[in-house]
């Protein structure tokens, strides 16, 4: 479904991605973790072409992301992305947030888009919030709307970039619950997150990054169950983020 081959990227002279390679299969849930500045956001954003890269190849659902002729908007329409800071459109109500891209990008009718939006709102537990403005919602609610907004586009996969790290602790759970449910339904997911409890529960695979390189890429059970098999840096990282 997603193939990443030898991808490198520089900002000027600093290398932020260093020969990254991995494959993500249909229905797989992959958690990407690593210290701050290790290139997690950059890597996940290369998948839908939000970040250009300098070397290597990325293919999503048969479409080569970096190739010159690729219609990036068309590709992105079916790759859902959820950001750390929600990025709802503050001038639009919740239901308008959900309907906008369906109408403008997919060409659905307003009614169809709103009906679908209502359906996904109910699924993230926000029935009855359709006509609120984003500013009138809590962080956790905003992030659930952002997830619903991405789901409305019938994505072939979902990318999450630290979806809970801007949230107050008591709201983290409600967002993770939605993500766990999605994973259970077989959605292909790539999640950058430090929520190791979540990772342990749903990750089929864990990718550990440091200084732009993928240092470890293994099954979830191995990552958490076999500390001795991990590279040194990953062990140190785990020791810091896991509760003792």
């Amino acid at each position: 479904m997603i193939v990443i081959e030898n991808v490198s990227k520089w900002y000027g002279k600093t290398r932020v991605l260093d020969h990254c390679s991995t494959r993500i299969a249909q229905g797989e849930v992959v958690v990407v973790c690593g210290p701050s500045g290790s290139g997690k956001s950059t890597l996940i954003k290369t998948i839908n072409g939000l970040e250009p890269f300098d070397e290597g190849r990325i293919v999503v659902n048969g479409v080569s992301v970096g190739a010159p002729g690729t219609n990036l908007p068309k590709l992105r329409a079916h790759v859902g992305m959820v950001f750390q800071s929600f990025e709802l459109f503050p001038h639009l109500t919740v239901i308008e947030n959900l309907a906008l891209a369906q109408v403008v990008v997919l060409g659905r009718s307003r009614d169809e888009a709103r009906t679908r939006g209502q359906g996904y709102l109910a699924r993230v537990g926000l029935d009855g919030f359709a006509d609120r403005l984003p500013a009138q919602l809590s962080g956790g609610q905003q992030q659930r709307v952002a997830i619903a907004r991405a789901l409305c586009m019938d994505p072939v996969c979902m990318l999450f970039d630290e979806p809970t790290s801007a949230l107050d602790p008591e709201m983290v759970g409600e967002v993770l619950d939605v993500m766990v449910e999605l994973a259970g339904e077989g959605m292909t997911m790539v999640c950058v997150t430090h929520e190791m409890g979540f990772a342990r529960k749903v990750a089929d695979r864990v990718i550990f990054m440091d200084q732009g390189a993928i240092l470890d890429d293994c099954a979830g059970e191995a990552f958490f169950g076999d500390p001795d098999g991990r590279p040194e840096r990953a062990r140190q990282f785990l020791a810091r983020v896991l509760p003792h």
Partner: peptide, 27 residues
């Protein structure tokens, strides 16, 4: 406007002109 608004619009498949028209200029 925060660059995240452009990114969010782009991530939903809006082109630059569409992002400008529906997301950026109204704000």
């Amino acid at each position: 406007l925060p660059p995240g608004q452009w990114q969010a619009a782009a991530a939903l498949g809006l082109g630059r002109v569409q992002a400008l028209r529906y997301v950026i200029l109204p704000q």
